[in-house]
Design a binder for these strands. Structure first.
Lengths: 121, 121
DNA sequence: AAAATAATTAAGCAATAAGCTAATTGCTTA
DNA sequence: TAAGCAATTAGCTTATTGCTTAATTATTTT
């Protein structure tokens, strides 16, 4: 067992941006909200109308999505309009896929080196 | 409030494949495991060596990843080798990005229709 | 066959998350 | 300014997660 304590692959803060994004995406209602917002901006009430849960519950989900940087909040009069921040979502997912999928990256090299070390006398 | 009860955007089962994948990805240790496996297959013990937590804890994470269809398990003698199933990971993330990002899809049309309905007398 | 090693399962515990209702804040309008 | 509506915050309950140590299963080695 080796303690490295890097929360995410290349991030220092205790709860990194990637962690917030992936946590936000782990909830089906939150993904559904993102899908709704991909069609058009909506007020908090319009979003809540599309769910069977209470308004405060939806508000919490919106808060999680906003904290993750996936949606933006804009107050107009007594309404709060929410809309998608497409960039951040795509960037985070892409960053992860890059890390896990095809190309070389630091952790890949480290892991390969360790794998090789085991094969030698 | 309207109850629609579709867990994922286009899936019927109570806990859909997408939900399992996103849940699996919501944990930093699990993402780290995926990153290690992207470099080369590893035994359960080799994976556990890379973490500060206990072996059973790592085993649980591996189980979650396997249930999500992100990694495969292969027993050879007394060792268990784990390796990445790249296809499933990429497909699920891509499916989600397709839904949320650029192109037309059922939920998009539905939401746009509802948004328009509000603007009419 | 006994002992050692790899890995998992089981049982239990503290921390977190997701939902509810009730209360609060902020804006608009009668 | 009082009433009403939009939205969030607060306080609480229940379920789930993520870990721990101890016990179990399966394989290999002596």
């Amino acid at each position: 067992m080796v303690d490295e304590t890097f929360d995410d692959l290349a991030e220092g803060s205790s709860v990194g941006a990637a962690q917030r994004v992936f946590h936000a995406l782990s909830s089906a209602p939150r993904r559904k909200i993102l899908a709704y917002l991909s069609a058009s901006g909506l007020t908090a009430g319009e979003i809540a109308d599309r769910f069977s849960m209470s308004k405060p519950a939806v508000s919490q989900h919106l808060s999680v999505l906003e904290t993750a940087g996936l949606i933006r909040r804009e107050k107009r009069g007594q309404f709060v309009h929410y809309s998608l921040i497409e960039n951040n979502l795509v960037n985070t997912l892409n960053g992860f896929v890059q890390e896990v999928c095809p190309i070389g990256r630091p952790i890949k090299k480290e892991s390969q080196a360790r794998a090789r070390a085991k094969d030698l006398p």
